[in-house]
Design a protein around this nucleic acid. Structure first.
Lengths: 344, 344
DNA sequence: GAAAAAAATTGAATCGTTATAACAACGCAA
DNA sequence: TTGCGTTGTTATAACGATTCAATTTTTTTC
């Protein structure tokens, strides 16, 4: 390593990064004093604190994350578990933007971990908890009795889930009011004259299927219209499969005249099927869809959509987690995002 | 916090996380020996290495990141700079998936940092370099004389950019062959009979504008067709502005009969304008677009698109960075992703 | 069988921070 | 003078890994 043998200049970056020792030497105080002064310890004289803070500011001191983490055990890391369905149009992006903006300036880093093996959802989380890789965890697509939630609660590990559970013990979550979305969306379909409405729902494993179903059923019961809830088709079904299925349905004897799509992908699939069958949405049948990225209204300007603000969800989740981390005793923060009124 | 007052059992998780000391005690070797054994130091007897490795495996030992980082200076972190235009449909997601999959099992963590202040692109990177927050950096939307690239090269800090620069000194990058895309896309338009083609280009600040322009101009010169390259409208222009502009153009005296859209958003905007003017893509005019998320072919099954594999770009960038990190002496890896042939 | 060489192991220092406990220096009461 | 609180400051010991420079053990050589 005789890299700087010939060249005299070129000071290696960050080789001379300031530490507490630097400030100690500069100020004349001991390292311990400097540390406590920067921590605003009341046992340190106010004059000293000011002096030290000033020097720290001048030389651009920033505490070493590794040293801190080693000493205190706090990682200053929040881990987002990226799951296989993250790729749903816009959802992941929006969430990420929300998370990072809310975390900005908090001192916490967001690390993103994938988990593509659906069979063992717990693995990445167990790894994080057991090996202390983060101070808190964030994940999506929560199940009624989610194994991740159970594990994290058992271990007293801070987390915020996107979506609720059916556990009795409280935990922090952020969720979109899917029941209200489904209720109002269905009402809308009925109001427009639909008498046979179809809802594409998430897989049975996910909690928000229940919510959507409740809202949907509540609306259809009130008005006594016919329904169709496919068994084999869910929000996670590949687009072309949904499309083909919808084509079949549209050809059938009693075809639905209204569709409720709790996701953009399913809307596009239905739309695709209509195209194939020469049907026009808004004339031959009605569709109400959730809107996340905004593509839908760009494609079909007068599509009936209800906006889910995923970026806000991200911000909320980050804020909730920060709260939980700073004051663990407080009640777990929970937020239900309301479905904004339909655009008319 | 008197949670475990009554219960005697309940071993606090990870409180007894195994360290080198644990293995040392269990095996009878010294901590130093264990450390070197796990590092497969040839000066340690093979039998010892095996013995130590076996114990480590049994008790599930995993080295402490903070301790390692403090001692060696290696953070084992790769930082992705999330920029304001990350939200472009699908791009960010795909990149993230690619990055995380390629990083899986490498020991590197991916931390995501936002940078919404377009005025100082350098700030987040300077912070990372000066404060040793990561071992390598990844970013997108590269400029011909990108300040980030210059800074990182000056400091000898490992990075991979998405997009090339005009610097003479080599550095690692991954880029889509936009020139070829533009060339072939334009040829396609001409082949379909277009005689007045319009290209929406990225802002002048970005390198890939040049590439697209070259390809575009090469094709139009070969066949001597008319062109329109808007000054005020770029890929970054908000969708509704592009739409309104396009409406104006379509109303004008010599309206283009072909559009080249190097992004999904611009395609949708053009499409939107056509809808407004009652024009049909594929009949009244032609559009060739880049496809990233796949929405386009879902909306318009017979749209002319050329696929950019962003997920692969992510994987490549991660691999390149890993290579650079493990053998810094090797020539900086660079990859030009070829535009796949048009689907016909 | 002793000296030299090679092989294997280890003690101690170090990275930058924080927490504990000890230590000065001071005034003030007894 | 002795003793006792205050009030600030500091020495020291961790946290868990790596690495240099010994040190011990084994093998080889004469």
């Amino acid at each position: 390593m005789r890299s700087d043998a010939p060249s005299p200049a070129a000071p290696k970056t960050a080789a001379d990064r300031p530490t507490l020792k630097t400030i100690a030497d500069l100020s004349g105080f001991a390292v311990a004093t400097v540390s406590r002064a920067l921590a605003e310890d009341p046992k340190i004289a106010v004059a000293t604190r000011r002096r030290v803070a000033e020097i720290a500011r001048q030389i651009g001191y920033e505490p070493d994350r590794a040293a801190r983490r080693l000493r205190t055990g706090r990682t200053m890391v929040i881990n987002l578990i990226l799951d296989p369905h993250f790729e749903v149009l816009g959802f992941g992006n929006a969430l990420l933007i929300g998370l990072t903006t809310a975390l900005e300036g908090s001192g916490y880093n967001l690390v993103v971990t994938p988990h593509f093996d659906d069979t063992d959802q717990l693995a990445p989380i167990r790894h994080i908890v057991v090996n202390r890789q983060a101070d808190g965890v964030i994940f999506t697509r929560t199940a009624p009795f989610d194994s991740r939630v159970r594990f994290l609660m058992e271990h007293g590990f801070p987390f915020v889930s996107h979506g609720r559970t059916d556990f009795t013990e409280e935990h922090s979550w952020v969720d979109f009011d899917n029941e209200d979305f489904a209720y109002r969306g269905t009402l809308r379909l009925i109001e427009k004259g639909c008498r046979n409405v179809c809802a594409i729902l998430p897989p049975r494993t996910l909690t928000f299927r229940q919510h959507l179903q409740y809202g949907f059923m509540r609306a259809v019961r009130e008005f006594g219209v016919d329904t169709l809830v496919p068994e084999s088709i869910t929000l996670d079904t590949p687009a072309d499969e949904i499309r083909d299925w919808a084509c079949g349905i549209l050809d059938g004897p009693n075809r639905p005249d209204g569709f409720l799509c709790p996701g953009e992908a399913s809307y596009l699939a239905i739309r695709s099927a209509c195209q194939k069958r020469g049907l026009v949405i808004g004339r031959d049948l009605r569709v109400v869809s959730k809107s996340i990225s905004g593509v839908i209204s760009q494609i079909d300007p007068d599509a009936d959509t209800i906006q889910e603000d995923v970026e806000q969800a991200g911000r909320l989740m980050a804020q909730h987690l920060l709260t939980t981390l700073s004051e663990p005793s407080v009640r777990a923060p929970m937020t239900l995002q309301s479905a904004k009124p339909l655009f008319e």
